[in-house]
Design a protein around this nucleic acid. Sequence first.
DNA 1: CTGATGGTTTGATATATATCAAACCATCGG
DNA 2: CCGATGGTTTGATATATATCAAACCATCAG
Lengths: 250, 250
Amino acid sequence: MRSEELPEIRHLHLFRDMAQANFEALMASSYAQSFPQGLEMARQGDPADFLHIVLEGSVELFAQWSGRECTMAVVRPVSTFILAACIRDAPYLMSARTLERARIILVPAADLRAMFRHDTEFAVSVINELAACYRSVVRSAKTLKLRNSRERVASYLLRQSILAGGVASYVLPVEKRLLASYLGMTPENLSRTLRMLEADGVKVDGARVIITDREKLTTLARPDRLIDGPDAVADATGSALPNIDFASGV
Amino acid sequence: MRSEELPEIRHLHLFRDMAQANFEALMASSYAQSFPQGLEMARQGDPADFLHIVLEGSVELFAQWSGRECTMAVVRPVSTFILAACIRDAPYLMSARTLERARIILVPAADLRAMFRHDTEFAVSVINELAACYRSVVRSAKTLKLRNSRERVASYLLRQSILAGGVASYVLPVEKRLLASYLGMTPENLSRTLRMLEADGVKVDGARVIITDREKLTTLARPDRLIDGPDAVADATGSALPNIDFASGV
DNA sequence: CTGATGGTTTGATATATATCAAACCATCGG
DNA sequence: CCGATGGTTTGATATATATCAAACCATCAG
């Protein structure tokens, strides 16, 4: 692991409050690894041996069943994923693959479990992290059950704009194919929906999103604090598909 | 609070491992309350002042958006709900209403937060509980995204049979209207789906479910350990709609 | 026993969404 | 520059699901 990386990791909410010596001990038993693009680094059902920390690149978390597959989240630096599985010493509920070349820190799950018994501040951090993750998936489930696909797309586009600082134009952080899967719809349906939304205050040209009438879009998307955030966590990192915190569990 | 109720609460995973004195302190600041049927005891968006423990009766957790509403979970004795909101000192993401007369213990959230800083065993229990809750919602999200409504119904019916001990016949624990909402479909669609499933090994007559051909039903439902469980937690209580643990967060 | 209530079922229909196929288009290695 | 690759869009169509309306049926208070 490179020395300049340690402060980045230390800065995460999860590791921010623990004793320095304990942080160092945890890092000493961890190691970095680089993965090429498109590599499946964890498969659902596998035992959770390591907490993963993304330092560079991006990772897709996805689920499979009966030959079907869907994107659950995209994790970007600097954040962690599959915390929950590590804690419960249980099989991963999702698979993970790199979307681009990625640099990952692997923290042995056993050391993690030992550590929060030993360092109360760390235990509190884990509690806060898990609670935030939980709430994030609940939001996600609410969006799936309460909004139709047009509303999901509209609220996603609006939310991304807000996350980017309220800008009127930005670039989609992921391929549309992947976005469609994340939003629970087919690429074709997303494509058509985007076209239809031109009448509602957003235009999407390639990967470029332009909000032409924010008020109109807001009327359609009906953003809700209890679904779309903001939530306290937000890790202040490069937010991707979901509010980053969403990803950390599995 | 009645003296015979304390052991029941103490028996929950969440409270099982903490020091006796600490448990007593927590209970001393808590109080019991009975709610009539159909009462909305918590509304989404409200500040999370209390952890709720269901001792008798049952509670529906539901979410609302834009005039629509859907059932997220049903909580039965003895288990807790809205842990995550309490921990983060954040607004509830779901509302709660009694499905029948219910007896609830209210544990002040502030005391809870103070306690896990003070009692490491309790902190570890909270960690485990939250991790289990997280995994449970992820399973739920997977079912919503990967299975169509017929598959959701089939796997639900099969899962309930297994939870009841592998019986061939059992009674639905909730109204069909509510079950439909939980499964993300309309009552009419559920009704028709149940009729169609008679060709696939289950018959539902009123609230009575009869599995006529388990193998056939299994072929259709394709139960998956990473969606349908079993999961370690399972609290061994009267499991309701979801694996109980699913409910505890919010 | 009886009427009122509210959940359930059924039928007819509309709408949302998926599927299939083909064209299109950007990207990238040679 | 070119052809191959893989994502995207478009059109035609099928399917799943929701909606609306009415009938049905269990439960319960009077």
